[in-house]
């Protein structure tokens, strides 16, 4: 893989903590990716616009506030209706086990809890890129049950 990946890390919702999001952003940069960090409290519309303008391959959504149940599906719907169903979406932060199946079925391909190692995230990214290159569905709007965890 010699292509440089572009990854948007965004924080929807109202909580004011972004230590986790920044950690993820730095880890991905250190793995050789170009990471665009949006800062706190972005609306779904702003996040989708950022993904479009930045021509991102991946969108990582960090949520600590419980807003994920509403916001993440909304963002994915917006991505798909904007023609960005090929973008690969993952999530992080505090997302309880019972909320996860719905997010996965909505098109989230991995959920990383607090304390996830950067190796784990990178393996996910490399594997999804392999899938994309072999034309297997992996984008948030593509039909598949595949997920990382």
């Amino acid at each position: 893989m010699d292509e440089r990946l572009r990854i948007v890390i965004a924080k929807p919702g109202l909580d004011g903590h972004d230590r986790g999001a920044k950690f993820v952003a730095r880890a991905l940069r250190d793995a050789g990716h170009e990471v665009i960090y949006t800062g706190l409290r972005r609306t779904p519309e702003e996040i989708v616009r950022t993904v479009i303008d930045e021509d991102a391959d991946f969108l990582g959504l960090s949520s600590l506030s419980g807003a994920h149940n509403f916001l993440i599906p909304k963002i994915i719907d917006l991505l798909i209706s904007s023609g960005c169903g090929d973008v690969i979406v993952f999530a992080g932060g505090i997302i309880p086990e019972i909320d996860r199946p719905r997010l996965f079925s909505k098109g989230v391909r991995a959920i990383f809890g607090p304390g996830t190692s950067s190796t784990n995230m990178n393996d996910f990214i490399l594997l999804t890129v392999e899938r994309r290159e072999s034309n297997s569905p992996v984008g948030c709007g593509e039909e598949t049950d595949w997920r990382w965890n």
């Binding site: 440089r4 940069r29 665009i36 960090y37 800062g39």
Partner: peptide
């Protein structure tokens, strides 16, 4: 070192 970049001006 890594060739990666952290692009944060949008913040």
């Amino acid at each position: 070192l890594s060739g990666g970049a952290l692009l944060g001006d949008r913040i």
